[in-house]
Design a protein around this nucleic acid. Structure first.
Length: 799
RNA sequence: GCGGAUGUGAUGGAAUUGGCAGACAUGCUGGUCUUAGAAACCAGUGCCUCGUGCUUGCAGGUUCAAGUCCUGUCAUCCGCACCA
C-alpha cells in the first residue's frame, strides 16, 4: 500500500466519531480506567507543539487500555477564563466570550486532526454557565465551611495589568504574565484557607504514586517545619513571641529581631528614642520590590530599637531588639530570637553590628562561621542541656519551656493562604452579597449560576476595582437573609478556580442537579493516571488536591486524594535547543507538521524524540525518519508471504513484550525503536504473513492509529483496530535457544561464546576455553578463579 | 546562597539497574536505479598512532567487572529566594 496520510486520516477520524469509538460507557460492570491530561488554556496562538506530547502519551495509554478491555475515560476540555483572552478582547473590542469561542474552535480542530481518542461527548468549558455554576457552588461550600474569608492585606499589584497577583504569579518582582513591575498595595481580598489543609496535603503524599520530584516540590512549597514558640519578656511589659526550629539553642540567643512591619513598633512608639529612624527603615524596606530586597540580601541591614530590651528567659540576661528586613512578617510570628553562633543569617547580622556570639553547640568554630550542624554537635554553655545531643536537647527544652509556661511546641508552614480575588471581568463572579446588617451572605443555591453581566468596557477601573463595579444595577441587590438593600461582590475568581475540580465534572458533565452524580463519582474517581506540566506541581495540583479534600470532608466524594498517579513530561525546545518563543523565531507550528507529514508522523515523532520526562529539542530531520518508518510500514502490505520465518515470529513476540511493558513505564521512545527493529527484521526476511502484519498493526495502533487502522482493514482485520484485543506474546516464542555469553580474562572482554540457554557453568567454561582467542589469553597461566553469572557473563582470573 | 536535574559518537538518544557501551533514528560515505536530481533499496559509519590500544564532562576511589556505586571537581539548565 502506498501511504498517503491526507487520504486516510480524515477517513478514520470520521469513522471513530460516527461509531463513538472512544466514548466512555456507563457500563459499571466493566473495570474502569480514568486517564487525564491537563486541559489547555485556548490561547489565540493556537496549539503549540508542546501540547501534543503529553496528550499523545496518555492517548497511547488510553488506547492500549481500551484494547485490553477497560472502560476508559479520557476526556478533554477548556480552561478558558483568564487574562490573555480578556486583554485580547479589550484590544480588539470583542467580547471575551467570542474570543474564547474562536480559540476553542481552533484548538479543537487541531486536537481532532491529531487523532487523539478523547471522549468529545464529555467536553467541558470552564466559562460555560452550566459549568461555572458549580465552580460557584463549590466556592460557597468552602465559604459556608469557614474556609473563605476576606482580609485586608498587602497584595502584589501589577502596575500594567492593574490586577492583584498571587505570590506564585510574581517572578523576580515582575508580573509573570506581562513582565511589568509589581508593587505592594493594600487591598481587601478573598482568601481560601489552604493552610488549614497543609498537614494533610503533605502527609497524604505518602499514599499516592507521584513521581518523586513532584512530591518534593509540593513538600518544599508547603514547607512544614517543627519547632517551638517562645515568649520573651520585654522592658515594655509586653511578651515578644518568636518561632524557632532550634529551641535547643535558646541559651545562645543574644539579641532579637522583629520584621519592619511588626505592630510593636507602633505600640512602643512612645518609648522608642529613635522612632523616626525605625520608621524610615520600614519605609525603605516597603519601597523595595521583592527583587531588590533579595539583591540587597548580601549585606544585612537593620536598626536597633533604642529604649526597649528583652530578657533571655533562660539566662535572664537583658538583650537588644533590632528591626531588620531579613525577618519576614508573613512567616512565623514576624519576630525571631537570634542565635548568631548557630544560624548563618544571625551570624552575618551579629558581625555587622558587633553583637556577642555565644557557642552553645560544640563542634564548629563559631568565630569563623555559624555552626548549623544538628547531627554531630554536643550542647555546651546551656545549663540543663549541657552534654546532650541536639535532638535530645530539643525534646528536653520544649518540655522545660512548657513546664515553665514560657513556650510551646509549634509547627510552621511556608504555605500561605490562597488569594482568591481578581479585579477582572473574565472570571467566575464571586456569588456573595454584602449586607450592612448581616455581613457577607452567600446567594441562594437556586440563583446559581450568578452570570457575568454584559458590560461596555472590560478594562479594570483605575482604582483597581473590577469592571463589574461600574455596573450599578448589577451590583445593587437585596440581602438574601434580611431583604435589605445590599451590594454584590464585584471581584471574580482566579483562573485556578475552574481547574480545581474539572476532573470531577468529566465524570458526569451534563448534570444540572449536582456537580456530578454520586454514582458517577463513585465509579470513575479517583483519576488513575494524571499527567501534566512540572510548573503546576505547586499551584494547580496543590489547589485541586485541596478542593478535593474539602469535598471529601463534606461527603461529596469518597476519595481523599483525587489522583492516584501523577507524571510529568519534559518541554519541547526549539531546534536551537532554546525554549520556543516568537521572539527567538524558533517556533514550530504543529499544523505544518500535520499537513506535510501527517498526524501519525507527528505523534510518533513526539514520542520518539527522547525520554518522555526530559526536555528535548525539535529536529525536522528526525521527523522525516518517523515518516520513513511509516512509509516502510505501509509498504509491508505488499510484502505478504504465506508464512513468516521463525526469526520474524520471534522478533514479533519480543516486540509485543517490549512495547507492552514500555508503554506502562512511559518509555515510548524505546517502544517505537523496538517496532522499527521489527520492521527491519521483516524487511531482512523479505516479508511476513498476514497474521504477523495484523498483529504489528495493532501494536502500532496506539502510536499511529490512522495508518494502523488502514493497514489492519486492508489485511482483512474485523472491526476497528482501535478496539481490537491488545496482542499477547507467547513466552515460548520469546525464549532463545542459545545465548551469547561475554567471556573476559582478568576483567577484560575477549570474546562471546554461544551456548544453549540452559548450559551450566562447566559447559560454558569448556566452550569458552575452547575458543582460540580465550585460549591465547590464558595460555601458560593458571586459572585460579572463575566468576560466572548464569546466562550473563564469565570472567576468568589467572596468573 | 539553597534545592533539583542533566552531562554518552557529527546529532537526538539507548543500555534488562554493576556484566559485550553506542540499540533505534538522523546525518554522512559508497553502491543500485535514473539523462540528472529527489525518492526508494543495499552496504558502511565512536576515535586513533590499527594495538593484547583508547572511549560515557574532569580527577580520584571501591570491585574480578563501573556510563551505572562512593568522594571531590567543573559545566549547563530549571525551581526557590533571608522561611528563623
Amino acid at each position: 500500500m502506498k501511504y498517503s496520510h491526507k487520504d486516510i486520516e480524515k477517513k478514520w477520524q470520521d469513522r471513530w466519531d460516527a461509531e463513538k469509538a472512544f466514548a466512555a460507557t456507563d457500563d459499571k460492570s466493566k473495570r474502569k480506567y480514568y486517564a487525564l491530561v491537563e486541559f489547555p488554556y485556548p490561547s489565540g496562538a493556537g496549539l503549540h507543539v508542546g501540547h501534543p506530547r503529553p496528550y499523545t502519551a496518555l492517548d497511547i495509554v488510553s488506547r492500549k487500555r481500551r484494547m485490553e478491555g477497560w472502560n476508559v475515560l479520557f476526556p478533554m476540555g477548556w480552561d478558558a477564563f483568564g487574562l490573555p483572552t480578556e486583554n485580547y478582547a479589550i484590544k480588539n473590542k470583542m467580547h471575551p466570550r467570542k474570543v474564547t469561542e474562536n480559540n476553542v474552535a481552533r484548538f479543537k480542530g487541531q486536537l481532532k486532526a491529531l487523532g487523539l481518542s478523547f471522549d468529545w461527548d464529555r467536553e467541558i468549558n470552564t466559562t460555560d454557565e452550566k459549568y461555572y455554576k458549580w465552580t460557584q457552588w463549590i466556592f460557597l461550600e468552602l465559604f459556608k465551611k469557614g474556609l473563605a474569608y476576606k482580609k485586608e492585606m498587602n497584595v502584589n499589584w501589577c502596575t500594567s495589568c492593574k490586577v492583584v497577583l498571587a505570590n506564585e504569579e510574581v517572578v523576580s518582582g515582575k508580573c509573570e504574565r506581562c513582565g511589568a513591575d509589581v508593587v505592594r498595595k493594600a487591598k481587601s481580598q478573598w482568601m481560601l484557607k489552604i493552610t488549614e489543609y497543609a498537614d494533610r496535603l503533605v502527609d497524604d503524599l505518602d499514599t499516592v504514586d507521584y513521581i518523586e520530584r513532584v512530591k518534593l516540590a509540593e513538600r518544599n512549597w508547603i514547607g512544614r517545619s517543627y519547632g517551638a514558640e517562645v515568649n520573651f519578656d520585654t522592658s515594655m511589659g509586653d511578651k515578644l513571641k518568636v518561632f524557632t526550629t532550634r529551641p535547643d539553642t535558646l541559651y545562645g540567643a543574644t539579641y532579637m529581631v522583629i520584621a519592619p512591619e511588626h505592630p510593636y513598633i507602633e505600640k512602643w512608639q512612645e518609648s522608642l528614642k529613635n522612632y523616626n529612624d525605625v520608621i524610615a527603615y520600614r519605609e525603605a524596606a516597603a519601597r523595595k520590590s521583592d527583587f531588590e530586597r533579595t539583591e540587597m540580601a548580601k549585606e544585612k541591614t537593620g536598626v536597633r530599637l533604642d529604649g526597649v530590651t528583652a530578657i533571655n528567659p533562660l539566662t535572664g540576661k537583658e538583650i537588644p531588639i533590632f528591626v531588620s528586613d531579613y525577618v519576614l512578617i508573613t512567616y512565623g510570628t514576624g519576630a525571631i530570637m537570634a542565635v548568631p553562633a548557630h544560624d548563618t543569617r544571625d551570624w552575618e547580622f551579629a558581625k555587622v553590628f558587633g553583637l556577642p556570639i555565644i557557642e552553645v553547640v560544640a563542634g564548629g568554630n563559631v568565630e569563623e562561621e555559624a555552626f548549623t550542624d544538628v547531627e554531630t554537635g554536643i550542647m555546651v554553655n546551656s545549663g540543663i542541656l549541657n552534654g546532650l545531643e541536639v535532638k535530645d536537647a530539643k525534646v528536653k527544652i520544649i518540655e522545660h519551656l512548657e513546664e515553665k509556661g514560657i513556650g510551646t511546641k509549634k509547627v510552621n508552614y511556608k504555605l500561605r493562604d490562597w488569594v482568591f480575588s481578581r479585579q477582572r471581568y473574565w472570571g467566575e463572579p464571586i456569588p456573595l452579597v454584602w449586607c450592612d446588617h448581616c455581613g457577607w451572605q452567600p446567594i441562594p443555591e437556586d440563583q446559581l449560576p450568578l452570570t457575568l453581566p454584559e458590560v461596555d468596557s472590560y478594562e479594570p477601573t483605575d482604582n483597581g476595582e473590577s469592571p463589574l463595579a461600574n455596573m450599578t444595577e448589577w451590583v445593587s441587590t437585596t440581602c438574601p437573609k434580611c431583604g435589605a438593600p445590599a451590594k454584590r461582590e464585584t471581584d471574580t475568581m482566579p483562573q485556578w478556580a475552574g481547574s480545581s475540580w474539572y476532573f470531577l465534572r468529566y465524570c458526569d458533565p451534563n448534570n444540572d442537579e449536582a456537580f456530578a452524580s454520586k454514582e458517577a463519582l463513585e465509579y470513575w474517581m479517583p483519576v488513575d493516571w494524571y499527567n501534566g506540566g512540572m510548573e503546576h506541581a505547586t499551584l494547580h495540583l496543590l489547589y485541586s488536591r485541596f478542593w478535593a479534600k474539602v469535598l471529601y470532608d463534606l461527603g461529596y466524594i469518597s476519595c481523599p486524594e483525587p489522583y492516584l498517579k501523577r507524571t510529568s513530561h519534559g518541554m519541547i525546545l526549539g531546534e536551537d535547543g532554546e525554549k520556543m518563543s516568537k521572539s527567538r523565531g524558533n517556533v514550530v507550528n504543529p499544523d505544518d507538521v500535520v499537513n506535510e507529514f501527517g498526524a501519525d508522523t507527528m505523534r510518533l515523532y513526539e514520542m520518539f524524540i527522547g525520554d518522555f520526562e526530559k526536555s528535548a529539542p525539535w529536529s525536522t530531520d528526525s521527523v522525516k525518519g518517523c515518516r520513513r518508518f511509516l512509509d516502510r510500514f505501509a509498504a509491508l502490505t505488499d510484502m505478504l508471504v504465506p508464512e513468516s520465518s521463525a526469526e520474524v515470529e520471534k522478533s514479533l513476540h519480543k516486540t509485543i513484550k517490549k512495547v507492552t511493558s514500555d508503554i506502562e513505564a512511559m518509555k515510548f521512545n524505546t517502544a517505537i525503536a523496538a517496532m522499527m527493529s521489527l520492521l527491519n527484521d521483516i524487511y531482512k526476511a523479505g516479508g511476513a504473513d498476514k497474521d504477523t502484519l495484523k498483529t504489528f498493526a495493532l501494536l502500532l495502533c496506539p502510536f499511529a492509529p490512522h495508518i494502523a487502522e488502514e493497514c489492519y482493514e486492508l489485511l482483512g482485520g474485523k472491526g476497528l483496530a482501535s478496539l481490537a484485543p491488545w496482542p499477547v506474546y507467547d513466552e515460548d516464542k520469546v525464549k532463545e535457544d542459545s545465548v551469547d555469553i561475554p567471556v573476559s580474562v582478568m576483567g577484560k572482554f575477549v570474546a562471546t561464546v554461544s551456548v544453549p540457554v540452559d548450559a551450566d557453568e562447566e559447559t560454558v567454561y569448556a566452550a569458552a576455553v575452547a575458543m582460540e582467542k580465550v585460549a591465547q589469553r590464558i595460555e601458560g597461566k593458571e586459572v585460579f578463579k572463575r566468576i560466572y553469572k548464569a546466562g550473563k557473563m564469565l570472567n576468568l582470573l589467572c596468573k
